[in-house]
């Protein structure tokens, strides 16, 4: 009997000890034990945190320099964080970025203003999150986040992560300065505009000439004698309708989908601890 009690006691003890450990393992290393901890400004925080190990040390240094340059110019914080999992943080895909910024104490001014770029490198769920907070929150509208990710997406899908971050920082620089993103046009864009314009012009010009040409010749052979039917002479003595067969075809109704993988936008998100307000969106690559 004593043995049975001993086994039950040991089992309970292990349960008490191991469950929190397992819970702790399902959260990032920086995640606080008490999520209601008061928010404070962090000190000497790294600007590039590469848990997924996708940057070389020189890339990390270059990105850090660029971030510092922008941060010094405007006084708003910026951090790039990568990880191999988002640890199920939710409810939205941006929650990792929000929590990382919030709980690590990023943000220089009183409102903790700044931008977070998060790369989730989980092979089954790769995505980028761009989030703004404090005074930067208003700049992260649906439109600007979409434009930002439209520009960065080709680099990410091509595996040029450092270049993607470099471009993303340039966009944040512009967004912070002007509050909007001016898409820079390339020669290819102008060629595309030109081709579209010429094609539409050719169609309109061609239709106009065809219409005018058709107006130049109204000579036609007569194939009917409708003008010569004696009025009210048409007599339908009988009409007999017989059903033969029926065909039923089924087609799938297409639903619209965005190119470039799943994209979502969330506004007015809060950190788990409360108090912070964030805005941003994610896109898979």
């Amino acid at each position: 009997m004593k043995k049975v009690f001993a086994i039950i006691f040991i089992s309970l003890l292990l349960l008490v000890l191991l469950v929190p450990a397992a819970f702790a393992a399902s959260r990032p290393s920086w995640y606080p034990e008490d999520i209601y901890t008061e928010r404070t400004h962090g000190k000497n925080l790294p600007k590039v945190v590469d848990y997924a190990d996708i940057f070389t040390s020189s890339e990390e240094a270059a990105l850090t320099n660029k971030i510092n340059e922008i941060v010094n110019k405007y006084g708003y914080d910026i951090v790039i964080v990568t990880d191999t999992s988002n640890y199920g943080l939710g409810p939205t895909e941006e929650q990792y970025a929000i929590d990382f910024y919030y709980y690590n104490g990023y943000g220089i001014d009183d409102e903790y203003s700044g931008s977070v770029i998060y790369l989730n490198m989980d092979p089954n769920n790769r995505y980028i999150s761009n989030v703004g907070t404090g005074k930067m929150e208003k700049n992260y509208t649906r439109d600007t986040v979409n434009k930002m990710q439209d520009i960065v997406y080709p680099y990410l899908s091509d595996g040029q992560y450092a270049r993607a971050m470099e471009v993303n920082l340039e966009i944040i620089d512009e967004l912070t300065a002007t509050g909007k993103i001016e898409t820079k046009r390339t020669i290819g864009d102008y060629v595309t505009y030109g081709i579209i314009s010429v094609v539409v012009g050719l169609i309109v010009g061609g239709i106009n000439v065809s219409k005018q040409k058709a107006n130049m010749n109204r000579v036609r052979y007569a194939t009917y004698a409708n003008d010569y039917i004696v009025q009210n002479s048409f007599m339908l003595r009988n009409i007999n309708e017989m059903f033969l067969y029926r065909n039923v075809t089924r087609t799938v109704i297409e639903t619209q989908s965005r190119s470039g993988g799943g994209s979502s936008y969330h506004s007015g998100m809060s950190s788990s601890g409360g108090g912070g307000s964030f805005s941003g969106g994610s896109r898979h690559f």
């Binding site: 002479s233 009409i239 309708e241 029926r246 065909n247 075809t249 087609t251 799938v252």
Partner: peptide
């Protein structure tokens, strides 16, 4: 998620007449 198109085929037999003048 499907659109169904039903096509029914019939044989129609008409019996009648029509007068023409000065074709």
């Amino acid at each position: 998620n499907y659109r169904y198109t039903e096509t029914s085929h019939y044989l129609i037999e008409c019996d009648g007449k029509m007068d023409f003048r000065r074709v």
